[in-house]
Design a protein around this nucleic acid. Structure first.
Lengths: 336, 336
DNA sequence: AAGAATTACGAAAACGTTTCCGTAATCCTA
DNA sequence: TAGGATTACGGAAACGTTTTCGTAATTCTT
């Protein structure tokens, strides 16, 4: 169980620590024959370098921290997967912490990760409040925020162009013949939600149709929230031919309500979501949505973070990635 | 950016390193007044203990490694979430690696984690092959397998009682009046799949009904596989009143095929899955399934691992957790 | 009040690496 | 072949902790 160390190798090979280290690091300051001899010995003795000791002297761990509200959330887990894979390719391992949608916990695990000496932290923040809450900490260690648009705040972040996404969605529904499009949002304080609503309004204006908005009283967008909101809506008068939801989760709740009210999607009502979470692609759901390019966001976040680690004092950067339409079967041409 | 260390504190306080260390660790070998003075100083100077240095001398990192085929898989991400939260409560952080369903990569990240000096590794293996492939490595570091039944192999593992689960499922469908129940499986080599099929067969036998099995040619159980298999099945003669799928993913594929063949679920056909992944609960899916208690499995795995870390030489243990039925709306009473 | 026990602290080693500096031995150059 | 440059290696410090051991100073015994 106890590991064989570099010292052990040195002892057996009859050389100094330095020489073994050089053999392993591919330094040029070593003879070709001794290198081979040492490498062979390492192989035979089953030597694995101790990354902790290495970190100690190098003053860097090659570990990145990731704080995520909940890996259960498919959007976040997709991002996480891509981040981990890309980070590893860049030579970094990932230490993951759930913040469980708790701002205090988010703060707690942040300092935990700092104590772990991670080289940088990627944050999938709970909401814009996270920034406020963490403001004093992000100076301690390179940090990039992901998925939440921080606008002009002095931070590095990557986000999708939410406004543009909703513009695309609205225009798409318009192109299908829809003129009465209802926007389903939620009363969240997040900038993301504000921008999405913005995009919808702007598109309506430039298309010359009326903007009509319904808010969920819940601040967290879930399918329960969508269900309740839609149930109420369907119970009253409803003249809209299409519904545009702020998130896929909301849309899935709408689907249930529609089913219970015997409203067929897409025959009687076209429905769209936003995020393109993996759920959306499932055959029984088949939700037309606006995709956030998760892989692109993941690599951008890692790149941004590694840049920041390399140049801690550089100016702050943000990457805005383009959304795209994913056509499925929840929205269709308005038949007259 | 550069951190304040224990040495800095000692210098300012005019005491030795040892005293500062004692103040922080809550040792009794220190005066109450000096302790308070030092703690206050640490607070003021913004001291954060360096976990790496600590690991170096303690010869333990308090880090657990987690190797998972893909966090995109909702079953695995649910497990991961629970593992992380519980591990953290036990004082451990989690280093997560995707094996991307690649046995070689699984092996590679395993050694990577060993080099990272993780105290133990939790493995959500790709298949039973993983055990073979990793056999030589699991001796190097405490390891527990999760979700795959390793039977009598010399390893620690936690798994659900797959056989019992399928028995419950079969009996449930029987209790709803179904006598012609088709089992949809996939030609995987995993023990899990064999045990599930076993459970179905046993239940059929003891209930005195005929067992009828259809295999997907694909070894990975996906909804695409389920769709293709079911599409073919529905195209031919199909006299069964209920279908029991080896996994929820397969069942979701069946749903799509059923829809396309104008077969209403559950009115014309009752459908069940296994795993109770989060998808299953979504309103448009609403799949009756057999639940694997993910939280219980997560905590059991962590507990098992911590036990193993504490007693590396103890005998191997396995924990088999009980499955349970989750009634939703994809299966119903057979109306005559 | 003298010896023993206890308390509170300092000195220093140790953990497994990397790297700086020094230095023999070999090489090249004129 | 003498001199300097280069090569190949060893010694030792350093990274930030924890912990063992030693020892003054204090407290407790009788």
């Amino acid at each position: 169980m106890s590991m064989v160390t570099l010292k052990d190798i040195a002892k057996v090979a009859g050389v100094s620590y330095a020489t073994v280290s050089r053999a392993l690091s591919g330094s040029s300051e070593i003879g070709e024959d001794t290198r081979k001899r040492i490498l062979k010995l390492c192989e035979e003795m089953g030597y694995t370098p101790n990354a902790v000791a290495r970190s100690m002297v190098m003053k860097r761990t090659n570990i990145l921290g990731l704080i995520v509200a909940s890996l259960d959330n498919p959007f976040m887990s997709e991002l996480t997967t891509n981040i981990e894979i890309y980070a590893r390719r860049c030579g970094y391992n990932l230490m993951v912490c759930n913040s469980s949608y708790d701002v205090d916990l988010e703060k707690e695990v942040f300092t935990l990760l700092v104590g772990r000496q991670v080289d940088g932290i990627i944050l999938l923040p709970i909401s814009s409040e996270s920034y406020e809450s963490l403001k004093s900490l992000t100076a301690q260690v390179p940090t990039v925020f992901i998925s939440e648009n921080l606008q002009d705040l002095p931070e590095d972040y990557v986000a999708v162009d939410n406004r543009q996404g909703m513009r695309i969605a609205t225009e798409y529904l318009y192109s299908l013949g829809h003129r009465k499009i209802l926007y389903f949002g939620c009363r969240s304080h997040s900038v993301t939600h504000r921008l999405r609503l913005d995009g919808y309004r702007q598109a309506c204006e430039s298309l010359g149709i009326e903007a009509d908005v319904l808010y969920s009283p819940f601040s967290r967008s879930s399918h329960e929230a969508g269900y309740q909101l839609a149930d109420e809506y369907f119970s009253g008068e409803h003249a809209h031919t299409a519904m545009l939801c702020a998130t896929d989760s909301l849309a899935i709740g709408v689907m249930r309500a529609a089913f219970e009210h015997n409203i067929s999607i897409p025959d009687q009502l076209s429905l769209m979501g936003f995020d393109n979470i993996s759920f959306a692609a499932l055959p029984p759901i088949n939700l037309t949505s606006i995709d956030q390019p998760k892989q692109q966001m993941a690599t951008a976040a890692v790149d941004l973070l590694l840049d920041r680690i390399a140049k801690p004092e550089a100016g702050h950067t943000s990457v805005i990635v383009p959304p795209s339409l994913v056509e499925r079967r929840s929205a269709k041409q308005l038949s007259e």
